Simulated assay, not measured.
Amino acid sequence: MRTSNHLIGVLNFLTFLLSIPILGGGIWLSSRANSTDCLRFLQWPLIVIGVSIMVVSLAGFAGACYRNTFLMRLYLLVMFLVIAVLIGFIIFAYVVTDKGGGRRITNRAYLEYYLEDYSGWLEERVASDSYWGKISSCVRDSKLCAKMGKTINGVPETADMFYLRRLSPVQSGCCKPPTECGYIYQNETVWNLGSGLMAANPDCTKWSNDQEQLCYACDSCKAGVLASLKKSWRKVSVINIVVMIILVIVYIIAYAAYRNNRRMDNDEPYGEARMTKAQPSAFHL
């Protein structure tokens, strides 16, 4: 009995530790939301799951230490629900970030982003007029474009240097015009009209050298935000998958230990059920 309780206690302590990376992932997404991703509602499922695992683990730990059957049953039930929700969240994260990605452009190290490459619930939510106003304001307030300025030995970088930079999706989509529009580089966030014809891309007419406007109204900016979200969610999902697998293993072991505790409470020797004990023994001469 004591060994089983110790095992359950150790397992609950492990699940408590496992809740830390999940909670950390939610907090990391929250910090991203305040800087580049700007979708603050996305981190809350992870934070709720992380806090739930912490609370449930503490309940299971207390139940094991004090042999409280109610707490142990509550722990097993809630942990099952938490694992189910975590699996659902992982599937949801992969489904909504399944499509889309940057396109390679000739003579450019950075990628270009197009809204038509994305589709589904997340794309519709980001691209909607009611939601994009808040997101674009958040991207503007993050000053991400203003931080793009770069000098070499006190001299501003040339166009060729800029073309070799690896920009983030938001920087590529929101802080400069699409390459196909034919704008001429003056500095990182100032581009002049070229002498040739503009492409049919509607973003070409939305670009502005006004530092408060830039390409925040462009579809490429929306695509850049979606690409940044996809990258962030995929990183967190890898951690969640590892934690989920460990949680399932821990849950199975904890359930087996709990069954063993119940068997001992009923004075049942291992491998012998109560109904077997109730049967009369065979008559021997």
Rank of each mutant, 00 (worst) to 15 (best):
A278Q: 12
S228Q: 09
R103K: 15
S195Q: 02
M244L: 15
L247V: 01
I135V: 15
G24C: 01
G88V: 06
G100C: 09
V55G: 00
V96Q: 05
S228P: 07
R234L: 10
W233M: 15
K147F: 06
L46Y: 02
Y118L: 09
V170Q: 13
A257V: 10
N153I: 02
Y251C: 12
I91L: 02
R259E: 05
L167M: 08
I135M: 14
M72Q: 12
R274T: 05
S31H: 13
Q186A: 02
L76C: 06
I152C: 01
E124F: 10
R67W: 03
N192A: 15
T205H: 08
G102I: 06
C221Q: 08
N192S: 14
V170D: 06
T69F: 04
C174P: 06
A59N: 06
R125F: 09
R274C: 05
H6N: 11
T158D: 07
W191S: 03
L17G: 07
E188G: 13
A273S: 14
N260S: 15
C215R: 11
N260W: 12
E180Y: 11
L23K: 07
S4R: 03
F162R: 09
R140D: 05
N261T: 12
V242M: 12
V51N: 06
L7I: 02
T15R: 08
I105D: 08
Q171V: 11
I53P: 00
I91T: 03
A109L: 03
S208M: 06
I246E: 01
S57H: 03
N260D: 15
M244W: 13
I22F: 07
L81G: 00
L77K: 04
D267Y: 10
A109P: 00
W233A: 13
A200Y: 10
G9D: 00
L86F: 00
L226D: 07
M244Q: 14
I22V: 14
C204W: 12
A159R: 13
L39Q: 08
G194A: 01
D98A: 11
M79S: 07
I245F: 14
M148D: 04
R263I: 02
S52P: 03
Y113Q: 02
N192D: 14
K277W: 09
S30Q: 13
T189M: 05
T97H: 13
G173T: 00
F61I: 07
E124A: 11
L76P: 04
C145S: 09
R2S: 08
A254S: 15
R140Q: 09
W28P: 01
V126L: 06
S208I: 05
I252H: 10
G120A: 10
K150P: 05
Y75M: 02
V243G: 11
P269V: 10
L58M: 13
I91N: 01
A273I: 08
G101Y: 09
N209S: 00
A64T: 04
L144W: 07
P45Q: 11
N107D: 14
Y66K: 10
E268M: 15
R103G: 09
A256P: 00
P21L: 03
M79T: 09
L247M: 04
K235S: 07
S281A: 12
C218R: 04
T205L: 13
R32W: 06
V85L: 13
Y131L: 07
W207M: 11
C181I: 05
S119G: 03
A109V: 05
D265K: 06
R259H: 05
T3H: 10
D267L: 10
V242T: 13
E180M: 12
Y251R: 09
R32P: 02
